[in-house]
Amino acid sequence: MGLIGLLSDPKIGKHLLRDEGEVVVDEVLHHWIVYVRPVIEAVVAVALVVATPFVLVELGGVLMLLALALLLHATWCALREHRDRFVITNMRVFRVHGVLSQQQATMPLHRILDITVVKPLHGRLLGFGHFVFESAAQEQGLRDIRYVGRADERDLAIQRVVQRSGLRGPRVVN
């Protein structure tokens, strides 16, 4: 595995409590919309490189440096989004993110009081939403999970796991 592979894989499996029987129910990557900006930046960087021979020699070096900076920023942003994972297991939900350093936030299923799914208009049109978790703790490291593809399906998956774990009684419908 090269440097790219090492940087792009957050290795979710190493965070699982396998001895306790923990298994992944769903691993959520960001919706494709988060990659639009890095792609636009990369296209602009390539356009600057292509335009370099057609400008004054004095500006050529500046354009190349600008193109390199844009390309590096686009790569960093895409890698940052790719490494940001939200994981639903049969015991908890957790988020792992970070490129050079890695952060992890965990919430056991029994601490989840409420999940709000926020779907702005463009999210409804493109198929993503944001999760807002309310827990029994006042301060938490896992509150907002943004740009979740198929947010309603993922919300139902969490509700099913909570229900199957026996942490909530059956819902009474009037």
Results as ranks from 00 to 15, higher is better:
R80E: 14
R95S: 14
A67T: 03
Q140L: 01
A136T: 15
E139W: 04
Q103L: 00
R124I: 10
A67P: 15
A78I: 12
S101L: 11
G127L: 12
R80G: 00
H122P: 13
G61K: 06
A69I: 09
G123D: 03
V46L: 13
K119W: 01
H110C: 07
T89A: 10
L142W: 04
W76V: 04
L113C: 04
F128R: 01
T116C: 10
P108M: 05
T106F: 04
I40P: 02
G123R: 01
T52Y: 08
V62P: 06
W76S: 08
E41P: 00
F54P: 00
Q138A: 13
P120H: 04
T89I: 08
R85T: 14
L79I: 03
F128N: 02
T89R: 04
F133T: 06
G141R: 11
D84C: 06
L121S: 02
P53R: 08
L109W: 04
P38L: 07
Q103R: 14
L72Q: 13
H31N: 10
H110K: 11
M64D: 03
H130P: 08
E58F: 10
V93I: 15
G141V: 10
A137E: 09
Q138G: 13
L72W: 10
L121H: 01
G60V: 03
V49L: 15
V99R: 01
L66G: 08
W76L: 12
L70I: 09
Y35K: 06
V46F: 08
H82D: 00
C77V: 13
L126Y: 05
R111H: 15
A136N: 14
V39N: 00
R83F: 02
L79S: 02
V39G: 02
I40M: 15
L121R: 01
H130L: 03
Q140M: 09
V57H: 09
V118L: 12
L56I: 08
V46A: 06
A74L: 08
V96P: 04
N90S: 09
I115D: 01
V96G: 02
L29P: 00
S101N: 11
K119Q: 04
L68A: 10
N90E: 07
E58M: 12
Y35F: 10
V43Y: 00
T106M: 09
T89D: 08
V96K: 00
M91F: 13
G141D: 09
D114M: 14
S101G: 07
L68G: 11
G60W: 02
A67G: 15
F128V: 02
V28K: 02
E81Q: 12
